[in-house]
Every structure is written in C-alpha cells, then in structure tokens.
Design a binder for these strands. Structure first.
Length: 228
DNA sequence: GACCAGGCACATC
DNA sequence: GATGTGCATGGT
C-alpha cells in the first residue's frame, strides 16, 4: 500500500510546473550553481556533501587564496594541506581525499578538463562519475547538470523531505525513484532542472527545516497540507 | 550546550 | 539489501 498520492504524468507535469512558477514568483531567478567554471562546480559539489553552502564558499576561497585551486595542484598537494584549506566544509579529511581522487581522475581520463566529458553519452558519463569513490548520486547528478549541462534532475535531502511530507512521493522510494518522478513528468530542460532544484533547496532551507506545519510556506497552497 | 545541515562509504546483520 | 555508523565544523 502506497501512502503517497499517485497521479499520471500529465497531471504531475501540471502540478510541478505550477509549483515551479509559484516558487519562481516568490524567489526570482536563482542562477544556481554559483561558480566561475565547470571545474568549480565539481569541487563545490564534493565539498557541499552534508555541509552548509556557506562553508563551501569559505573553503573555495581558501583554496583560491592559497593558489591551490587548480586541477594539477590539487592532485599533487598533500592531503593535510588540502584538509586545512577546506576545514569549513566539515569532514575535511575525507573530502581532501575525494578532491585529490577526483582531480587525478580528471587528469588521467579527461586531460584535466571536466568539459571533455560533455561529448559522452549521459548515462555513460553518469556511470563513470558514480564509479569514483566519494561521488554518489547527488554529487554525480549535480556535476552532470550544472557543470556539463546535461538534463538530469538532482534529488537532495530537501526534495525528499518536502515531497514526502506532502504525500507526493512514497517515503520508501530510493534516489532513482524520486528522480524518475520528476524526469518522467518534465521536459528534459537543463535550465528548468537547474532552477527547480535550486528553488526546492531554498524552500527547504527557508521554510521546511524546523517547520513541520509549513507555516507561511509560499508553496503550501499548491503542495497541500503536510501529511507526515 | 545541543542540535543539525544540499552525503557517502563501509561494516554488520 | 536494509540498516547503522563514522566523518567532525560552525551557525542558530
């Protein structure tokens, strides 16, 4: 027995677009992901794992100020030095390893440029990224969408929490189930996916964190009363 | 001072 | 294959 409301693709598309438009009306264009280069998107995607974004900004600034922010230099910098620079991102020892592994991978396979993955088939690229240690579904999809401009819907903790809370997805669904929920219903539009994910994150951070009743939430009218 | 945030890997059952 | 646990900062 599923607890969530089931609705066909067309109705779902309608609903999601209504939600998207409402969130955009409230917040405007987010222009997420904030990064100067596709490489910076990748580094940010790894650093933001279970960490607030403000810490990631500090970490990236530290890397830049220390002139480490370069694929060759990160690959060759001792973990301790990296860890010190990315301390504000939490789990800095683990993440220092991840950054080095990722940069070495880029150098070995793509001449140090993530852009060189862009010609690859999307599913192949996804598989390649997921095979790397430290890159899970959300991180891989963030890289595919925001660094490579591939139409993948990024699912994060907020997406799960918000849509579960309102009875729109099943609490037991895994990452792929939730991704399909969006991708089946929406056109594969990179701009739409990028903005939608960002708006969901804003919604989560501003209204859902410690507000089970969803008071004052701009999307409540469309999403309905919380059921969980 | 407690709580928890835009995950992931690995151990254990 | 499902569930639990370590990682370990800094703002509220």
């Amino acid at each position: 027995m599923n607890k969530h409301i089931e609705f066909d693709c067309e109705k779902r598309r309608h609903f999601l677009m209504e939600l998207y438009n409402r969130l955009e009306d409230t917040n405007g264009q987010t222009n997420w992901w904030p990064a100067d280069t596709p490489f910076e998107v990748c580094i940010g995607a790894i650093l933001t794992q279970n960490a607030p974004w403000r810490g990631v900004v500090k970490s990236i600034n530290n890397l830049k100020e220390n002139r480490i922010f370069d694929v060759h230099i990160i690959a060759d910098t001792p973990e301790q030095i990296l860890a010190k620079a990315i301390r504000p991102s939490i789990y800095y020892n683990q993440k220092a390893k991840k950054l080095k592994t990722f940069c070495r991978f880029l150098l070995e396979r793509y001449k140090g440029k993530i852009e060189n993955m862009a010609g690859q088939d999307m599913l192949e690229a996804r598989k390649t990224l997921l095979a790397l240690p430290g890159i899970g579904c959300e991180t891989a999809d963030s890289i595919l969408l925001y660094a490579l401009g591939m139409p993948v819907f990024v699912v994060d903790a907020y997406t799960r929490r918000i849509f579960t809370r309102h009875g729109l997805i099943d609490p037991n669904w895994d990452y792929e189930n939730i991704r399909n929920f969006f991708e089946e219903a929406l056109e594969p539009d990179v701009g739409l996916y990028g903005e939608f994910h960002a708006l969901i994150c804003l919604l989560g951070a501003n209204y859902c964190k410690r507000n089970p009743g969803c008071d004052n939430c701009p999307a409540k009218e469309i999403m309905g009363e919380p059921v969980l």
